[in-house]
Amino acid sequence: MAIHIQSGKNDIQTNPKFSNNIHSMPFKIHADCDAQISKYFLQTPIEKEILSASFRGHPLLGKEIQIPAGYRGVVLHETMKPATEKEDRKFYVIHTFDKFKYWNWEKAPSKNDPLVQAMDWIDIAEALHSPVVEE
């Protein structure tokens, strides 16, 4: 199975307003729909770089994470998921972002979080796979 990612319109620009509204939440909402984030998801800075918020009464602590330089976050849309695993899948880029907020359930985001650590791979991949240039 191959996956195709296509940027639909000619090179979508990163919209700062959109970047402010990307959240990684410590739970799964069994839905795929619009959410009234700016109305309901109230965030207060509590200490350096750390934000607090609540979701359905649960206390959350969050932090803004920048996408490393040279990379971009993308929001993909799949019109129809193929019925079998063998078929190719097609995704369209509908938004791009350069930062997002990462939230934990009553635990300040730190280097111990897998998602924060995952960013390490970008540097390591760079070191491992970038072409060797002879000087």
Binding site: Q36, Y40, L42
Partner: peptide, 11 residues
């Protein structure tokens, strides 16, 4: 349907 209620409510 996503957020439930405003913070007035005790979830």
């Amino acid at each position: 349907v996503v957020f439930g209620f405003p913070q007035l409510v005790r979830f």
